[in-house]
């Protein structure tokens, strides 16, 4: 069905920054390569580039709004750098699923997980994994920042739930 194809094209345009750049760089070639023909092709060529980019920015902003709520410790430490990193990550990483905000935050946390990442991220990686997997239990080494000492300390944290019950958390000294 022509409209289904057109909507698939629009969806990709909205969420895929690379595809969007390719399309507005060579509209007819890219739209034709996607499979649009006739009136659908004509409509694609009439799209307002700034409107499409505006919507794409709005989609990223909407995804961003959930991140500080799901990663509060990392957000507090990284501040504006967290948003910069997320916007760069999200432009090329669309998200799926019913609980997509948790999925998005976990994938982003894993993306951030480099030797340069703040120790606070270690907690969020475990907590988000526990939220996302809905497994009975998850455990992870969590690194805590210590203001007066060299390097972070290490603690083992367990997260667990029973059935559909709440997620519990226990820190081992």
């Amino acid at each position: 069905m022509e409209l289904a194809k057109e909507q698939a094209f629009l969806a990709k345009l909205y969420v895929d920054a690379e595809f969007r750049g390719q399309f507005f760089g060579a509209p007819k070639m890219q739209a034709t390569a996607f499979g649009l023909r006739g009136a659908a092709l004509d409509r694609a060529l009439e799209l307002d580039a700034e409107q499409v980019r505006q919507f794409a920015r709005a989609l990223l902003q909407k995804r961003w709004l959930a991140i500080p709520k799901l990663m509060p410790r990392t957000a507090k430490v990284m501040r504006a750098r967290l948003r910069e990193q997320f916007m760069a990550y999200a432009a090329d990483h669309p998200v799926h699923g019913i609980h997509k905000h948790v999925t998005d935050a976990l994938a982003f946390a894993q993306y951030l997980n480099t030797p340069e990442a703040p120790p606070e991220l270690s907690y969020e990686l475990g907590h988000l994994a526990a939220l996302h997997s809905r497994a009975i239990w998850v455990f992870r080494w969590v690194y805590l920042r210590q203001p007066m000492k060299q390097g972070p300390s290490k603690r083992l944290v367990f997260w667990w739930r029973i059935g559909n019950g709440p997620l519990h958390e226990y820190w081992i000294h």
């Binding site: 698939a8 919507f55 997509k100």
Partner: peptide, 14 residues
């Protein structure tokens, strides 16, 4: 609105 097409979840109302 359309929120999903071609295997992509747009993430907002289009």
């Amino acid at each position: 609105a359309c929120t999903r097409a071609g295997g992509i979840q747009i993430g907002h109302l289009s």
